[in-house]
């Protein structure tokens, strides 16, 4: 029994390590996609957030300020994406792809410029990292320490998910947001400023993706390296589709992807199962669930279509 509880603790801990960056980014993606703008650039926005977060934390010594700056940097790229896609009606996929190349390039460029030609930042001290909520409350090897003693930001991302659900479905702004993604022309005739709503949503998606990236460098690890964001952004986009473009669905999907990496960790114990098989777990489980359990996903009707005002 003890062993089962202990292993359960390890799985939950690994799940909570892998989930938050995905969830932040996925919630961001929800904003953008529901308002009708495809945002493939989530990965790039996470990378720039990861870099800016560390730099700000190193300069100020305050991890929360760093976390916020990571979000701002992501939001800045959200602005670029918004200008290109909304104001100029350019192809959203191309703009997003460009951001995915541009943002890591800029991050590495500035990293090399600031830190003596090294493409990794110095590592953060423990005080410069995001705090853990129950540090020292539970004994180190106990179940509750593995489960509850995670970063405050981890709790934050779940609270944020509830808030965003409320925003989407219980407020007039949420209704406008969803309507803009379905039929922008109809909204315009009702006096809703489509551009404004979409701008807010795309910038918010950049901000949240930036937070996701900053979480990785300020919590999971303690420095920026080009390899810290490898595919999390794309997994987040997959999670949103998986979760049928809703915040509550995205939470479930992100937890599910997180759980897969938790199982991976436990299965790697002692090498009784071939590591190559273990590495396949997330992908195989995803395909199986996608085919068997997830019904038809309805994409917002106006998603990906640039809306140009009729003059």
């Amino acid at each position: 029994m003890d062993v089962i509880i202990q292993n359960l603790g390890i799985i939950i801990n690994a799940t909570l390590t892998a989930t938050p960056p995905l969830l932040f980014a996925a919630l961001g993606s929800c904003f953008s996609e529901r308002s009708g703008v495809i945002n493939i650039g989530i990965e790039g926005m996470m990378t720039i957030g990861a870099f800016s977060g560390v730099v700000a934390a190193l300069l100020t010594g305050n991890p929360w300020l760093g976390f916020f700056c990571g979000g701002l940097a992501g939001a800045l790229f959200g602005v670029i994406h918004a200008i290109v896609c909304i104001s100029f009606g350019a192809d959203q996929t191309i703009s997003g792809t460009a951001i995915n190349f541009l943002a890591p390039g800029i991050a590495i460029f500035f990293c090399k410029a600031i830190y003596k030609n090294s493409s990794q930042t110095p590592s953060l001290d423990t005080v410069q990292k995001l705090p853990k909520l129950f540090d020292g409350v539970f004994p180190v090897r106990s179940f509750w320490n593995n489960v509850l003693n995670t970063y405050t930001a981890t709790y934050l991302c779940f609270i944020l998910a509830v808030f965003i659900w409320f925003l989407f479905y219980k407020t007039s702004f949420g209704m406008r947001l969803r309507a803009v993604g379905e039929h922008p022309k109809a909204c315009e005739t009702q006096g809703i400023n489509v551009f404004k709503v979409r701008y807010i949503c795309v910038i918010a998606s950049g901000f949240l993706a930036g937070l996701g990236g900053a979480y990785v460098t300020l919590a999971t690890v303690n420095q920026f390296r080009p390899s810290v964001i490898v595919g999390q952004g794309f997994i987040a986009i997959a999670a949103v589709i998986f979760g049928k473009f809703t915040p509550q669905g995205s939470v479930k999907a992100c937890l599910f992807f997180g759980l897969c990496s938790g199982i991976k960790t436990l299965a790697a114990n002692g090498n009784y199962v071939s590591p190559d098989l273990i590495s396949m777990i997330p992908y195989i489980v995803t395909i199986i669930t996608l085919v068997l359990f997830v019904g038809k996903t309805r994409i917002p009707a106006a998603n990906g279509k640039p809306y140009l005002k009729v003059k």
Binding site: G9, I10, N13, S261
Partner: peptide, 26 residues
């Protein structure tokens, strides 16, 4: 001696989880 094959040279999160796993096991 506890032993884990992370099967990656780049997955930092997996490395961290492996450490938590080992710490929990003593």
């Amino acid at each position: 001696i506890l032993q884990i094959n992370a099967n990656s040279f780049t997955d930092t999160a997996a490395g961290k989880s492996a450490a938590v796993n080992m710490v929990t096991n003593g």
